[in-house]
Design a protein around this nucleic acid. Structure first.
Length: 462
RNA sequence: GCGCCGGUGCCCGAGCGGACUAAGGGAGUGGCCUGCAAAGCCAUGAUUCACGGGUUCAAAUCCCGUCCGGCGCUCCA
């Protein structure tokens, strides 16, 4: 039985999907006005991990993640760069998808765009007006009336009155609104902005309504999991709840939020200019290293990223690779799995996706695997080999995948390397260690490290 | 200002009332292995979990207070 933390109820709850064996999940995707940074990568990875694990446990998962392709920032950027909103959004969407693919994030089953769902949004807004939980401000747009939604604030554990008191703490409240907490469902057209027709005149949708429209259209009026970054819990997700419930939709049963990624103790953000782009980091680090690093912190814990932590994960990944290399070199075959390790792993993951504990199980196995190889206990080593692969699969890690730099030139070089290794081994056999070491140094200069084992010499890149 | 979350060894980071003699990773140190390396294995590291009170037979884990940090109350993953 899988348990997960539900933000709304502030508790770890047993996960009971609506339909046995099936899971429907909606995860808020990016607003595509710029390139993705590591913070986006962490949230994407969190939900990729959850999706993968649910599948690994035998669930059939329908995964929806949207693209917000119209909003204030896109309009501003498009104006600044002299392009259209649609072109700008399309460009950054492509960049986002490419980098996520590079990072090893599986594509969603559906990837709806906000602008493709205007009709569904208009239907929802009509419904909200009909139910008198929304109102029109002439020339401004249509607003949701928070006063009609008594549980407003529950997602972040606050009452409506508490929220009213702190409203405007950081940003001025629009005096036209009936209540400072009310928010826009539809924004009336402004000069120079893209517009869509509506029964209330031309305009564009507010932010939150798109997710309600897309999620319910693709997954149904009730679905299992709604996720997103922690910073979306309020107001975005709270407003989605208000809209959905205002329209008498059951909506999401579990809310999952991924914690932020910090740099030097501060949230990584465009506005703070402390961000590292995903593509930049992936240019210097294998995707798996970043993935492993992120999995070593629980998804609900704020994670610190630094050169040290990156180096630490690099070392850990190399250990996994090196164990795998040894295992292959000795020619292990598939075996039955270590039932105890499997149980330990599953228990960790079932408990609110405790990836740090799950990763610990893998490293315990790797140590035991190396020890078994040292002792030439091939039965045990094979058992571990099979188990580790199965567990890594659940986390999206592949021990056989080494740093993929220079894969093209490698094949050509392999033959030369093999020849040199042959010469070196002849020298070693003849106890000509000066010559043997010279060959080793020569290869080292080309970035190749040798490992002599009882079954011969294997080589690798550092 | 209001609210939420957190402060664990050199670093990252699990644990959230009893098997904690505090997981795992990285770094360090000693040893084994090796012709020497590399890789690996073994050993070693917090008498202690920000600080001060309290509850309990029992607290890193619960309660209160203090200090420090992050996030939210704008758009944000």
């Amino acid at each position: 039985m899988i348990s997960l933390y539900d933000t709304r109820q502030r508790a770890v709850l047993p996960f009971e999907p609506i339909a046995p064996g099936q899971v429907s999940m909606y995860v808020c995707g990016p607003t595509v006005y710029d390139v993705p940074h590591l913070g986006h990568a962490r949230t994407a990875l969190t939900f990729d991990m959850i999706r993968r694990y649910l599948q690994w446990r035998g669930f059939e998962v329908t995964f929806v993640s949207n693209i917000t392709d119209i909003d204030d920032k896109i309009i501003a950027r498009a104006a600044a760069s002299g392009t259209t909103e649609a072109e700008l959004a399309m460009h950054y969407k492509q960049v986002y998808m490419k980098q996520m693919e590079r990072f090893g994030i599986a594509r969603p089953d559906h990837q709806p765009h906000a602008t493709e769902y205007i009709a569904q949004m208009l239907d929802l807004i009509s419904e909200l007006l009909k139910r008198k939980v929304a109102y029109v401000i002439k020339g401004k747009g249509i607003y949701f009336s928070v006063a009609t939604h008594e549980s407003y604030g529950d997602l972040i554990g606050r009452t409506v009155n508490e929220l009213r008191e702190s409203a405007g703490a950081r940003v001025e409240v629009d005096a036209n609104k009936a209540d400072p907490l009310d928010f826009a469902l539809w924004k009336a057209a402004k000069p120079g902005e893209p517009v869509w027709d509506s029964p209330w005149g031309p305009g564009r949708p507010g932010w939150h309504i798109e997710c309600v429209a897309m999620a319910t259209h693709l997954l149904g009026e009730i679905f299992d999991i709604h996720g997103g970054g922690d910073d979306l819990a309020f107001p975005h997700h709270q407003n989605e709840i208000a809209e959905a419930e205002g329209a008498k939709l059951d909506f999401a049963r579990y809310w999952i939020h991924g914690a932020m990624l910090n740099v030097n103790g501060e949230k990584m953000a465009k506005s703070l200019e402390n961000f590292t782009t995903l593509s930049g980091l992936l240019d210097t680090h294998p995707p798996q290293v970043l993935r492993l690093l992120m999995l070593q912190t629980h998804y609900r814990t704020v994670m610190e990223l630094s050169d040290d932590s990156l180096a630490s994960a690099t070392g850990a990944m190399q250990r996994l690779n090196s164990w795998h290399r040894r295992s292959l070199a000795i020619g292990l075959s598939t075996a039955t799995m270590d039932a105890e390790a499997l149980a330990r792993f599953t228990a960790a993951m079932d408990d609110d996706f405790s990836t740090p504990a799950a990763v610990a199980v893998i490293f315990d196995l790797v140590r035991a695997g190396n020890a078994a190889l040292d002792a030439t206990d091939l039965t045990r080593a094979s058992e571990i080999f099979t188990t580790v692969h199965h567990l890594c699969d659940a986390l999206g890690i592949d021990p056989s995948q080494e740093n993929p730099t220079s894969t093209t030139t490698e094949t050509a070089l392999t033959q030369q390397i093999d020849e040199l290794l042959d010469q070196r081994n002849q020298a070693r056999a003849a106890k000509d260690f000066t010559r043997a070491d010279a060959i080793r140094d020569q290869l080292a200069a080309e970035g190749i490290i040798l490992e002599d084992g009882p079954d011969g010499t294997i080589w690798r890149h550092p």
